[in-house]
Structure formats: structure tokens, C-alpha cells
Nucleic acid binder design. Structure first.
Lengths: 215, 215, 215, 215
DNA sequence: TATGAATGAGGCTTCATTCAT
DNA sequence: GATGAATGAAGCCTCATTCAT
């Protein structure tokens, strides 16, 4: 799930492996720097220093600084998708959605770098951001359509689903910024945030089930 | 409502007026630059050139670059609040909320610079962003509580209101980025976005009225 | 002795008086600023602010910044000469010299600004510095020649006197920098410095009197 | 002794050598500029231009402008110490002191830049100045104590030695400024200055030997 | 492929001086 | 004479990228 922040020492690697290993070191360093200080502070000098390689080495593996930055979010984003999928469970659609919402915040605590990498990407790594958005929204819309097919959602068109997905993602972004940063470390999101989300979703999006009490 | 992008030529102004006029020129230039190219591209050199004053003049009116950037959003944000208030109408609470949502997108078309000034502020003008957030969320929570007092909303606590407000603001941000940019210019938000929002709100947040059809 | 840091309010002054008064305010402000922060920090803006006048006013009274700075030392330097003369007494020449040495350090404590104004002048106000040097050394050489005339000094030529005077002034400068600055405030010079000076002078310069014990 | 103002062309140097060579070029350029125009005029732009490297290169070798300036004096100061030591001879203590005094002025003619680098350092490179002062005064006090041990000086305490050393350094500074600048170039110090110094020292500081005539 | 010094454009800010009111 | 905004040159420093080794 994490991006191979491997502890393995570089013992006997062939050329290809060494190459990949160097690139990975740069990648991990960038993740750490951006996660901790943001894209703006992630100069090539700082990243390569963190990675323990020379500045010039950077350009053997990435066309330029921006290219690396744009790869950061999509890669970790996929880790996130996997993480959330693993925690969604098999309950009814509404409960699954709450679980996804919760799992998102769990993931942020698991990979604290994700918070800044995600939130700042839109403005510092727009290409990567777009890629991530596509990854997510396509999958999300598919989930919603399946729920509609199963009768758990009614009266929403495909286009509306797309808008809804953006609202959901926007909500998460805002909420994560508002509630998860706490004096440097990343904390759990408060219960009332989750309950508010549950109410809004179960009443506003999902048709059935009255008000489900606990996830 | 607009920030005095005055067309008036500087004819016979006294000292105080000329002073204010110069500051306004800088402010307007910054609005334009940031709106078009983003905070990162808004160098003092570029702003003053756009304003038609010397670089040194900038520092007669602002302590430093950041101070100006941090004033941008709160100032225009108040224009927005006023704009939206004027369009909210006197219908029931749910309809008013839809009106506010719509008016937000109308304002973006009226003042296209607002989109970037708002969206990037969190990372490039955090102080200004916080000020804006406070301005907005306080007012918004008050609106929701009043609606609850009037029976239009039920079963939401004050804390949950705060979370809801963040979701609403996050939704708007995401949606505006997704739907309002269109090949450089700012376009109207599609109908299905508004209808999706209406459904989510009327069902999820507001208790009454079945499904209101059109605003 | 101080430069008229007058407390008098400007009540009924005619034009000439008001003019002089403004100039004096600027002068006093510069003394204070340079004394406290050094020439390098004494910008026109800072001086005029301290003086409570507009920046433009400065140039009604001084050709430019440097002109003011170059007037600072000579003016206070004359105060110093007067101060020292008043404390020299009528003892024999050697004792008088010790008295002058002591009085110099007393003056520094009386007018703490003098320390920086004197010490930095050489590099920040070279014209003023030269003027001050001439003022002092001419007078000092005259004193030494008189002592020689009276038999208190022997075997030094006029040219050598000039060199001696520079050594004496250089010594004072160095010593004042080394011993008088103490965490911001100006303190008395230690006794052993004075005793070392006494020994060097009574033995090296003045011919007579064995070793005079106390001044 | 000179700071490697090498004439060697950069022919075949390895990386380490080229690196050192560049740093030396910057150092030499700074020495020249400061020596000729003073610290205040020694902008990074001017230094790098003189050195024939890009401005950015400067920051590959020095943390910032001040760091370089603060290294100037201590480095050349050590050259001076070496130069003087080599010329002190083995005569009696008083004659050695005169020799040191003379050698100081010889050094100034050998390395004319030293004059300004030394004299302005106190205000423009205080850290370097302090380092230099420590270098010098510690060594000087040791010399005086040794002379006292050998009976050549009597009746001075250690504390008084410290004061004396400051007087000697102050004297040299003042005299060098007064007598060594001559229409731009650096000239020899006049004989009467040396004779005055000799008299003051042999009579005032050193106990023995009547009046030694010539060094 | 790895290295890391060199580059130079560009950013922010300060400040002495001018000048219209 | 007093005002204070406007000017613009100049300073320091950062950093993505290149390139010879």
C-alpha cells in the first residue's frame, strides 16, 4: 500500500533493478517532502538530498520537476482506492457509502502524506490531479449506478451521479482539511462529521432504509 | 459589488483620493492577474506593470506581496455574500438554499476572477482564506439554525451544521472547478448539477415538502 | 552640551526660528538613531519618522542624506572637547593627560550616542570624520607642544607629536569599543585600562615625575 | 602568503580542484573589490563579475554574502601574522616590538587590500573581525608575557597587557589610515612615526636598555 | 547512469531622491 | 517651507535545468 518505502539495502542488483531502485528512492523522498512541507517547498534540491542522490540524477529519471509531482497523487491515489475497497464490506449500499467515507479518513491517518499531496495537487500538479480525479470518479459513478441497478438509489440520472460524485469528493476534501489537520499531526475525524454525512446520504441519496443507526 | 474597476479617469483628485486611487489600481490589477493566471504567477512586477505604477509604489500601499494576496479573497468574498443575499428571495428554506447555490455560480460568471482567487487561496493566501471561511461559515450556520428554528430542518445538531456547511462549500468548490471552466472562459453550470444538488438537499437536509420541482 | 534636544514646545516662533527648530529636530533624531543603531540603519525614512516630519522635509534642510551624517560627528565632537577641557584641571602635564583620557570615557557615558557616531564615522561619514580628526589633532598637538615648552615632555619632535596624537586617539577608539560596550548600555572603563594608560604615558611620553600614583 | 591570486590557467583539473579553484576565484575577487572599494561596495554581483562566474555560482560556495565577507579578514590576517613573525628577528624584546610594528606596515604595502579589509571589518564583518581580534590579541599577549618573564617588561599585569595590546592595535589602525593612504596608493609609513612609536614603547613599556637608537 | 558545479533568469524588497500639491 | 506618494535602480537570494566528467 505504501509506495515501497523499502528498507532493503541495495545488495546485489542488476542494472535494471538499480535503476528502478534509484527512481523509487526519489519517488519516496518526494512523497515525504510534499507530504510534510507541500509542493511549493519540494525543490529538486530538497528531494534529491532526501533521496540521497545527486541533483543531476533526478533528470535521468524524470523529464523535469513537474513530471514527478504529477505522478505523486495518481500513484498514491490507487493505494487509497484499494484500501477503501478492502474496507467497504458487503452491507447495503447506504452502509457501504458510509464505510467508504470513513475509510477515506482512515487512509489519511494511515498515510498522512496523502492529505497534502491530495489537497494541493489541484494547483501544483494539475495533470496528476486530473488523472486522479478520473480514476476516482469513473469508479465512483460505477458504484452508484450499480446501487441504482439494485434499487438502493432512485431518481438520479447518470449525469447527476457525476455531479454527486464531485460533491462527495469535494466534501471529503473540505472536511479533511478542516478536521484532520491538528497541530502538525493527523487526527481522526469527529463523530458528528460522520453522522452528518450519514444523514445527508441516507436521506438525500439512498432511497430505502429509514435512517440506519450505526455503520 | 465589483471592486471599483473604475473607468473614471484621474482628473482632479486631491491627495487622499489619488492615494486611494493608486491602491485601488494595484488591487484591481492583482485581482485580474490572480484571476487569470493564479497566485503563483502574480509577482509584484507583473501586478505593478498591469497597474501602471512602479514596483516601489507597491510598497507604499502594502507591507509586502503576501499582505495584498491575503486581502483579495475576503474583499471579493463580501461582494459575493452581498450578491447572493440579493438573489435569495423569500421562498421556503429549501428553495432559498437552491437559490443560493445557483447564485454562487451566477456570481462566478459575473466576476470570473473569483474562481481562482477562491480556489487557490487556501494554499497561496491562507490568512485571507481563513478570514473568508470565517465570514462565510458563520453566516451559513446562522442560516441553517434559523431554518431549523422555523421547522424546515430537523434532527441536525449545531456541530453537524458546521460539518454540513463545510460539505456545501466543498461541493461548490469542486463543482465550480469541474463545470465552470470551459476552455478558458467561465460558463454556466449545467442544469443536472443543480438538480442533483436540489435532490440531495431537499431530501437529505430539509425535512418538509416532498420534492420541490423547480426553483 | 547635548545638541539641544529641547523640550520646549513650539509656541510662537517666527519663520526663521521654526526653520531652525525643524532642522534641529532632524538633527536630534539622527543623533539618536545613529547612536542606537548605527549609520547603516539610519535611513532618511527612519530619521524623519523619529523627528516627526515628512521625508520631503528632510531635503529642505540638507542637500542629501550624507550631508547630515557628515555633520553629526564634528558637532558632537566639539561638545566633547569642551567637556574634556572642563575636566582637565591644572595639575602637571602628565596628570592632565590622564585626566583627559578619563574624561573621554566619562563623556561617552554622558552622551552614549557618541560611541557609535565616533567609531563608525570613519567609514560611513568620512568627511565628517576628517573634520573631527582635524579639530582634535590640531588642539591635541598644541597641548603637547605646550607641555614640551614647559619641560614636561622632551625629545619629541612636532612630527612625532602628530603621530603620538594619532596613537592616543586610536587607543581610545579601540579601548572604547572593547570596554565600553556592554550588552547595549555603556559602562565605565575598567581601572586596569586606565592604569595601563597611565604607565605607558608617564613613562613613555612624559619625562619627569617618576610614576605618579593617582590622578 | 598572498591568497593564491594564482596566475595558473585552469588546464586539467579534476572536479575537486576545479571546485576549489572557483571558490578561490571568488575569494580573490572579493579581496580585490573590498580592498579597493570597501565592503559596502562589494555586492555579490560585483564580486562574481570580477571573478568571472555567474551570480548563482556564488551560492554554491558560500552560504550568503556575509559569510564570505566574514572569512576575508581572518584568512588574510593569518598571512599577516606569518609575515610579521618571519621578520621579527631575535634581538631583544623592545627591538622585536619595533620590528613587528614596522613589519605591519610592510605587510600593508605587500597586500594593499589588507588596509580596508582590516579597518572596515569591525562594522561590515563583525564576526570575521572578532575572529581576527582573537587570533591576534591572544598571540600578542603571549609575546608580552614572555617578555615579562624574560625581564624585559616589568610592572604590568596580565589585564594591563590586554589593554596595552588593544592600544597597540588601535595605534596601528589609526596610523595606517592616516599615513598609508596616499592618493589612492599605499605608501611607506614615515620614519618619524616609527621613531615616535619606538620612544613610546621603549620608555613606556619595556624596562631596560635606555633608548635604543635604530632597529 | 551518477555526479554536482555552473548557470542566469527572475523574485522580493529597500531606499535615496524627486516633485506636484 | 512642508508634505508624502511615486520612482526605479540596485541588492540579495532561489532554483530548475544543463553538461562535462
Amino acid at each position: 500500500m505504501t509506495q515501497g518505502r523499502s528498507i532493503v539495502k541495495m545488495t546485489k542488483l542488476n542494472r535494471v533493478e538499480r535503476n528502478a531502485w534509484t527512481k523509487q528512492k526519489i519517488f519516496d523522498a518526494a512523497t515525504k517532502i510534499v507530504g510534510q512541507f507541500g509542493y511549493a517547498e519540494a525543490s529538486v534540491a530538497r528531494i534529491t538530498e532526501e533521496a540521497g542522490v545527486a541533483q543531476g540524477t533526478f533528470y535521468n529519471h524524470f523529464e523535469n520537476r513537474q513530471e514527478l509531482l504529477d505522478q505523486l497523487l495518481p500513484k498514491i491515489g490507487l493505494d487509497m482506492v484499494e484500501f477503501i475497497r478492502a474496507r467497504t464490506g458487503t452491507a447495503d449500499a447506504a452502509r457501504q457509502e458510509i464505510a467508504r467515507f470513513s475509510a477515506f479518513f482512515d487512509f489519511i491517518r494511515e498515510v498522512p502524506e496523502f492529505l497534502r499531496i491530495l489537497n494541493e495537487a489541484e494547483f501544483f500538479a494539475p495533470i496528476g490531479y486530473q488523472k486522479h480525479l478520473d480514476n476516482i470518479s469513473v469508479a465512483y459513478v460505477r458504484i452508484l449506478r450499480r446501487a441504482r441497478g439494485a434499487g438502493a438509489i432512485q431518481d438520479y440520472s447518470d449525469e447527476e451521479f457525476e455531479a454527486i460524485v464531485h460533491m462527495l469528493m469535494g466534501s471529503r476534501g473540505y472536511l479533511s482539511r478542516r478536521y484532520s489537520y491538528s497541530e502538525g499531526s493527523v487526527t481522526a475525524v469527529p463523530d458528528h462529521v460522520i453522522s452528518a454525512y450519514r444523514k445527508l446520504m441516507t436521506r438525500g441519496l439512498f432511497s430505502s432504509s429509514g435512517d440506519l443507526k450505526n455503520p
